[in-house]
Design a protein around this nucleic acid. Sequence first.
DNA 1: CCGATCTCAGCAATCGATTGCAGTCGCGGC
DNA 2: GCCGCGACTGCAATCGATTGCTGAGATCGG
Lengths: 332, 332
Amino acid sequence: MAEVSIDDVAARAGVHRSTVSRAFSRPEAVNAATRKHVLEVAESLGYRVNPLAQALRRRASKLVPLIVPDITNPFYGELARTMAAAAADRGYQLVLCVTGGEVAQTNAYLTSLQEMYAPFGIVAPSTSVDLDELQNVALGSKVVVVDRVEQAQVPTVTVDSAEGIALAVDHLRGLGHRRIAYVSGISGAYTSRDRLAAYEGLAAELDMPAMILDAGTGPDVGERAAERLVRMTAEERPTAVIAANDMVAFDLISALGVRGVSVPSEVSVMGFDGLEFGARFNPRLTTIRQPIADMGVIAIDLAEKLLKDGETAHVVLAPDLLIRDSTAEVPR
Amino acid sequence: MAEVSIDDVAARAGVHRSTVSRAFSRPEAVNAATRKHVLEVAESLGYRVNPLAQALRRRASKLVPLIVPDITNPFYGELARTMAAAAADRGYQLVLCVTGGEVAQTNAYLTSLQEMYAPFGIVAPSTSVDLDELQNVALGSKVVVVDRVEQAQVPTVTVDSAEGIALAVDHLRGLGHRRIAYVSGISGAYTSRDRLAAYEGLAAELDMPAMILDAGTGPDVGERAAERLVRMTAEERPTAVIAANDMVAFDLISALGVRGVSVPSEVSVMGFDGLEFGARFNPRLTTIRQPIADMGVIAIDLAEKLLKDGETAHVVLAPDLLIRDSTAEVPR
DNA sequence: CCGATCTCAGCAATCGATTGCAGTCGCGGC
DNA sequence: GCCGCGACTGCAATCGATTGCTGAGATCGG
């Protein structure tokens, strides 16, 4: 188990260590036969290049921070999983950074990882991350942002909110719903805002009343929205609710349950995210699915493109409709 | 933004770089006045020691792998969060490694991080991790295991299954339940097994029939258990079910819902884990809470103790009962 | 006043790689 | 036969720290 270094390989193969180095990192710069020999010797000794030494010299490591506000939220969990896989595919090692939504934490992580020569970072911003501020931070210019909507000087990958909301409204109207409310809130406030705008736009367009049950933030959006809903008279009460994201939908359904309102028989509820967990909720959640897996690999791609060409692209993905059991025909 | 190195500080402070180094890492070895001066200069230049260079020289970095089978599962999410915080407190940086339950992945991550001179690792084993095999892997001896029950040559931190199950059964019996079934399964198979044993033991002791609805693994335990339950006659059907963990409970409740069985009015269901998400489920889940936050800091403590004294402790924590809405008095 | 002891800071080797520069060797052209 | 050129490879500096060893002063006792 003694660690074998490049010099060991060099000695054993009868070449200089620079040749060993080149055999690994610049194959074309070394004679094919020599290279083969070196590689064999390395293999037989169980040599592997030391990532720290390499990073120190090259001033570029393989560590990539993924910055999320809350890993407990399955949305970020799924994001982390696909991201980790995509990163590993390209030889990177994901470093998880949980900020708890604090921008100071985000900055701290970013600088800390820059000190480890991280080539770039991925950030899934919480409410308060100010992108402009991001620019001033170490590594700030080499960052790709996921699930954030505003155009910025950094690459982004998001899902088309308008399309998603349209899908949701279509689905509900197809079931006969005409009074369709909306609940905003919690994580991903920027996305929430964007989705809210889409909802309002669509409502106007379809000449449908826009009912915002709650647009606050914090952990009890569901509670407040449910409370508000049960207080309404039968005529004004919506027959369906679209939640800004799946977590809010879960929250809402739970809070409605506490108040004796059952979903979907009395109210239909839709989410937005397409979390796998939705299939295990009670009732199984109808939702707009974001292609989270794609977001992972695309984010890494964007980052590499940014490094190579300095190109700052904004990718917008299309969501799709996932019909499960939390929506039903309008009761009458 | 030019990176400032130890030599810059040395030059500016008029001392040798070794003095600067000592000012940071061995305060007692340098004159107080000199040290103060050096630190001030360092501060004014914005100097921070380069973690890579330090790790390379010391052969010990601050990177700590946390190995989990599935970060999508909120249990591991919560674990990761507390672990990240505990690690950060002590100057470590958590590296998230998601294995998908494959032992080869676990080993790959462990060796990969050992190459980065990780001082130790934390593993939350999935079903198939074989601890003995762990021993043969790089870093294998410097690992602490979380949420795993068997005694081993590595430190562990777990929760007392027997006590948890006893709490659950007590609670249910207090509500009048006499036919209390159990569903095993999914993640943390070792824990599941342990909890199952506790259930069986307690059933025997209380002279209560032991009904195992399902003891399989895989993603559809809930489905199978629900199916089995609805097929039972009214006399044999349990009035309450204890699930091996919260995720199974969610799954089960959802599957029961699909089959028209409502919780808790027809059957009470309890979980085991105490996930925060349980408070947002429908109905809000009654469960046995594990002190996950404690597990995080204890795991890090154990790891440090292992490094210093070679001491291999096994910590067993006490769970507690968290009553919410998924359990009710036995219907009659 | 001298030597022993102690404290502190400098020197230089080292961790494990990368890379610009220079040198070697074979070969073809004139 | 000499020179230039191309293809390799070796040399040594470098990335940014740590640390054993050495030596310079200061302190102290006799």
